[in-house]
């Protein structure tokens, strides 16, 4: 089934909002882009290819995403840093009524408070998008990092 232009634009808007709520440090809005029963996972390409389940982050509902934000705000200690997301075009792999499976590439540049700027992570977003009455949401976002290596730590979601 071909995705109509309206759905496609709404989905692209979701992706843009995803990048901007993170990059603009509005993390509290980040979980709102997911369904209640969502899956958000960050895993290296190596583990993904070997079908090893454990990666860096594994949240299997929206409450866990909210907890992550709470923890980053109130508990965890890390140096001030920002991200800049660069997103690729989206390949729609499958679309049927209210759900789509799509894949896109990302780069995340990390900017430290001293100005140090580095390509922090790149990889693929494997998404399952659910089209709800309120618009499209992430039912699944699996972040497959090209590298298994993380510089210092991964605090802010990718």
């Amino acid at each position: 089934m071909m995705m109509d232009i309206g759905s496609r634009l709404a989905m692209q808007d979701l992706f843009a909002r995803y990048a901007h709520v993170i990059d603009d440090d509005r993390l509290e809005e980040w979980p709102e882009l997911f369904t209640e029963d969502c899956l958000y996972q960050v895993i290296s390409a190596e583990n993904w290819a070997l079908q090893r389940p454990i990666g860096l982050i594994h949240c299997d509902n929206k409450a866990m995403l909210q907890d992550r934000v709470t923890s980053l705000r109130d508990a965890n200690i890390y140096e001030a840093q920002r991200y800049r997301h660069m997103l690729s075009a989206t390949l729609v792999q499958h679309f049927h009524r209210d759900e789509a499976r799509v894949v896109s590439n990302y780069q995340v540049i990390r900017i430290m408070q001293n100005g140090e700027t580095m390509l922090f992570s790149c990889g693929r977003y494997l998404d399952r998008i659910r089209f709800t009455k309120a618009g499209p949401l992430f039912a699944e976002r699996i972040v497959v990092m090209d590298s298994r290596r993380v510089d210092t730590l991964l605090a802010i979601p990718l």
Partner: peptide, 27 residues
């Protein structure tokens, strides 16, 4: 048990709730 190990892995590793600080404090 597999599910518990998967869930609890959120606590540790480079993005772990109780281990991420160890990544920066040495630096």
């Amino acid at each position: 048990m597999q599910r518990l190990r998967l869930k609890q892995a959120n606590l540790v590793g480079p993005a772990g709730y109780i281990s991420m600080e160890d990544g920066c404090v040495g630096g």
